Computed example of a mutant assay.
Amino acid sequence: MPVYATRAIRREFVNTCDTFLDNVEKSRVCQIYKKFVGDSTTNETEIDVRVKLAFDLRDPDIITDIQHFNEERISIYNTFWEYAKKFLEGTAQDSVVAVDKRHHDPIVHLARAISVEDLKNQIAKLYLEELAIKFRNNIWLIFLDDKHRCKIKEPGHPVAAIEHEKQVVVTTYETFAVSDHDFTKCSLIPSVTMICNIPDNIEGSFYQGQVNIGLKDTTFQASSSLRYMTELYDMLIHTEKHHLFLMLYTDGGPDHKNTFLRVQLSLIAMFVALDLDYLVAVRILPGHS
């Protein structure tokens, strides 16, 4: 019985050989895999030759369109296209314009979506906002972020409230007798968490709600994804509400980056602890929280 291997399996074998064997040609590795495994898969060159031959013959009966098998299936992209149409017809209808070239003016007019990835993100944001409004009585919408580190001076020893390579304004006859910001033994980081009051409609503001501010000592209270989830769990428990949905918006810091395994485990722990049915973790760009 013929054996057919996928591209992913062949690629993994080639990469493994490339890691442990030095200066081995890729063609030889592929041939070794084909012989030992008994792979009957036709290589891409032969497939391209057959496809070219089919087009050169110009026989419509050779090529069969099998898309008609998908006519009754529900596409997973239907929701995306629905909200893409709503986005283009609604919020972006007055702002989708070409870029203005202004060489002597600091203001440049750009389109609402400056790339395909940006368009996808804005459509996803619109979808999540409407989802939050629809289930506003059963959902927590949380905005979480760490702010700038605050330096703490020693008693009788002032510290310059500036960063590296910045200047301090002093008078002509005054002595600048303060320490640099690097010479501090203690610093605090404010952590801001807002439990959003979800509006009734999409035109309402999402930037209002209960704001909680906590201070962390950078030495003894190092930030971690598990610490953030623990603090958030304590806040939500004290709201005396049991919602089934949780939507969490954070910045792109390492303690919130949802592609990291430790962050994913913390989110799973939160999902189990709150007995949720649905959890959405959205990571936005750093500095845009």
Rank of each mutant, 00 (worst) to 15 (best):
S95W: 13
V97S: 11
V97M: 15
D100W: 07
H103A: 06
D105I: 08
P106Q: 12
P106Y: 06
I107M: 08
I114D: 06
E117S: 13
E117Y: 10
L119F: 15
K120L: 09
N121D: 12
N121T: 00
Q122G: 05
I123T: 03
K125W: 04
K125A: 14
L126S: 04
Y127G: 04
L131E: 15
I133A: 08
I133T: 04
F135G: 04
N138F: 05
W140Q: 01
L141G: 01
I142L: 14
F143E: 14
D145E: 01
H148S: 01
C150H: 01
K151L: 10
K151D: 06
I152V: 15
I152W: 02
H157N: 11
V159Q: 06
A160F: 12
K166F: 02
V170I: 14
T172P: 00
E174I: 02
T175V: 03
T175Q: 09
F176I: 02
D180H: 06
D182L: 10
S187D: 04
S187E: 02
I189S: 00
P190N: 10
S191P: 01
V192I: 15
V192L: 15
V192G: 08
T193V: 15
C196D: 05
N197R: 13
D200M: 09
N201S: 13
E203K: 10
G204C: 03
Q208V: 12
